[in-house]
């Protein structure tokens, strides 16, 4: 045991090198490009377009994409570009809320389970049970009981994915807690809370970030399913899933109504998957992510 092993590895010294490796990673670069594009479109797009997504214009019903209506109009003459951009805010907002809840509760529960043996058994049995349900099916069940709303979708998806995130955190904590410098900190009388927050959690960051980027992707996909089944946001504030569901009735005459939001989802999820792959390659090459 050398002196070096008794101090935490110097993480911040490596930050710049890690950043450089990330940018050199093709998956990461392409993924951030795609996802960044969607995020900027969601933030700035509605302001640039300046059209009310709910403004009706019966005269302009079912206009195919043209210079006047870049992405066409729907059955009530509403501008699809505007609706997709506002939809992006909602879909991304739900996804973001889900990963924030995942980060908070996943870390909390994962840390408790990984650090305290006695809690581990109970928490992991509950997690096993929650994970035994097919992910989307459980989300549908919860959302069906809570009643349709965006909050419902967030809660349902958070409940589904938190056990999976907690497992990832727990797994890396089980490794880190046995390392020399953590044992040394314990021997020098540091409190559990201090050991967890100062010494253990920073080292679980890499797998957590990778996990969250995949959870974001799954949340976007599952939210679309919930909305499609009428369990997500109401049609006046349309998420992408709602838009697809609305367009379904007019698939023959106006295929763009379903194509446009579908492509938006695909780009976002593809971007997030690439981002997650790139992050995993750079931060945590040994990690394997499996989701249901």
């Amino acid at each position: 045991m050398t002196d070096l092993a008794l101090t935490a590895p110097p993480r911040f010294a490596r930050t710049r090198a890690t950043l450089r490796r990330m940018l050199a990673n093709r998956s990461f670069a392409l993924g951030s490009l795609l996802f960044g594009f969607i995020c900027i479109a969601a933030l700035v797009g509605p302001l640039l377009v300046g059209i009310d997504p709910n403004a009706l214009s019966i005269r302009d019903r079912f206009q195919p994409p043209s210079w006047q209506f870049l992405l066409g109009t729907d059955n009530l003459g509403r501008d699809m570009l505007s609706r997709v951009l506002y939809g992006a805010r909602l879909s991304l907002g739900i996804g973001f809320a889900v990963i924030v809840l995942n980060a908070v509760f996943g870390v909390l529960l994962g840390a408790l389970a990984g650090y305290y043996r006695r809690l581990d058994n109970i928490l992991m049995r509950v997690a096993d049970a929650l994970m035994a349900f097919p992910a989307v099916l459980l989300a549908i069940g919860i959302a069906a009981a809570l009643g349709p709303s965006a909050i419902t979708a967030i809660v349902a998806l958070a409940v589904v994915y938190i056990p999976r995130t907690a497992r990832v955190v727990r797994a890396s904590i089980l490794v880190v807690r046995e390392l020399d410098y953590v044992q040394a900190a314990r021997a020098s009388g540091a409190t559990d809370a201090r050991i967890i927050t100062r010494h253990i959690l920073p080292n679980c960051l890499a797998p957590l970030i990778v996990q969250l980027s995949f959870v974001f992707a799954y949340a976007i996909l599952s939210e679309a399913v919930l909305s499609f089944l009428g369990l997500g946001s109401p049609p006046t504030v349309p998420s992408w899933g709602v838009l697809i569901s609305e367009g379904r009735a007019y698939m023959r005459e106006a295929a763009w109504l379903t194509m446009v939001p579908g492509v938006a989802i695909a780009i976002t999820v593809l971007g997030l998957n690439l981002l997650g792959d790139g992050l995993r390659d750079v931060l945590d090459p040994r990690m394997k992510v499996e989701q249901g």
């Binding site: 697809i244 698939m251 379903t258 194509m259 695909a266």
Partner: peptide
């Protein structure tokens, strides 16, 4: 494979209906 895991399956179903049925 990447595109496969990134497409919503119900959307894919709709696209296939438009393409192969309609």
């Amino acid at each position: 494979a990447l595109i496969g895991v990134s497409l919503p399956n119900f959307w894919l179903a709709l696209v296939m209906i438009v393409l192969f049925s309609v």
